[in-house]
């Protein structure tokens, strides 16, 4: 009897502890979001989106060039990462053999785990050292490499969810393999693939480390893709560790904008998937 009581108590105590863990984690989460949105939202204003950074020491100014710069970098990254990941994912899902796909999958997962700063060194060695200056090309290349693993694995995963019966149906109608893949399998998995890509973009959108010595930074507009280019994450870093209070305020504002952007991508991606499920 006492034994049973003891067991019941253990049960209650341990589950209370897991509850505390969960409350702790979720509490931290809400605290962070709340703090950031409250603190960052306060400092966001029209200038932030339209003006260049003010000269060092002066207050005011904005981060228009960093917003455009981030967009440029993400565009380049998507152009590098998405097609390779998409086609590679098709290979793994549709033409899978045994040993080679296993190897590809394993290496992809390893590449996914490589610290972003190391990817930065790679892009520096491959692009910056060749052309002897920092550029958006180099930054986009680094982010693009980072995008490939997730683009590839998510494409593969969603293609695998397409039922075999659809593939058989298309082949039985006289489609060749590539016609079957591009006209039936890929459209059926399209929402999933797109949502995976969006998550992928959201992930690299906040990356700072690989940009520090590839796209570097710029306090002015950078034309084209061949100049050092400002980006939001690098600006946040520079401003946060800088000595001026005005810089800190702008860093919060930039953090707010960056986070809002990342969340928007995340939530859109979720919505895409849930639509797919309810259809």
């Amino acid at each position: 009897m006492g034994n049973l009581l003891w067991r019941r108590m253990t049960n209650a105590v341990m589950f209370s502890m897991t509850l505390m863990c969960a409350l702790g984690v979720v509490g931290v989460l809400f605290f962070i979001f709340g703090y950031l949105f409250w603190n960052g939202g306060r400092y966001v204003n029209w200038d932030f989106f339209t003006r260049l950074p003010a000269p060092v020491g002066e207050s005011g100014g904005g981060m228009a060039n960093a917003i455009i710069g981030s967009a440029k970098l993400l565009l380049l990254a998507t152009l590098v990462g998405a097609p390779i990941g998409f086609l590679g994912g098709i290979y793994l899902a549709e033409f899978g053999g045994k040993t080679f796909p296993f190897f590809v999958r394993y290496v992809t997962d390893l590449l996914n785990g490589v610290p972003s700063i190391v990817i930065g060194i790679f892009a520096y060695a491959v692009v910056v050292l060749r052309v002897r200056h920092f550029s958006a090309w180099a930054g986009g290349f680094a982010l693009g490499i980072m995008m490939i693993p997730i683009a590839l694995r998510s494409t593969e995963e969603f293609l695998r969810q397409v039922p075999t019966s659809l593939r058989e149906g298309a082949l039985a109608l006289g489609a060749t393999r590539w016609q079957m893949i591009l006209t039936v399998v890929v459209p059926a998995a399209m929402r999933g693939i797109l949502s995976g890509m969006m998550l992928d973009i959201a992930r690299v959108a906040g990356e700072t480390a690989p940009l520090l010595f590839t796209s570097f930074g710029n306090r002015f507009w950078s034309e084209g893709f061949d100049k050092p280019t400002a980006s939001l994450p690098v600006m946040i870093f520079t401003y946060a560790i800088g000595p001026y209070d005005d810089w800190h305020r702008q860093a919060w504002a930039a953090g707010f904008v960056l986070l809002a952007m990342v969340f928007m991508f995340n939530i859109t991606s979720r919505l895409l998937i849930s639509w797919r499920r309810t259809r």
Binding site: S165, E168, A170, A172
Partner: peptide, 17 residues
């Protein structure tokens, strides 16, 4: 060509989405 000439209907209906 063979599969165009020899059509097939499956056990479970498999319309494309």
């Amino acid at each position: 060509n063979l599969r165009q000439r020899v059509g097939m209907v499956f056990q479970k209906a498999n319309p494309f989405p």
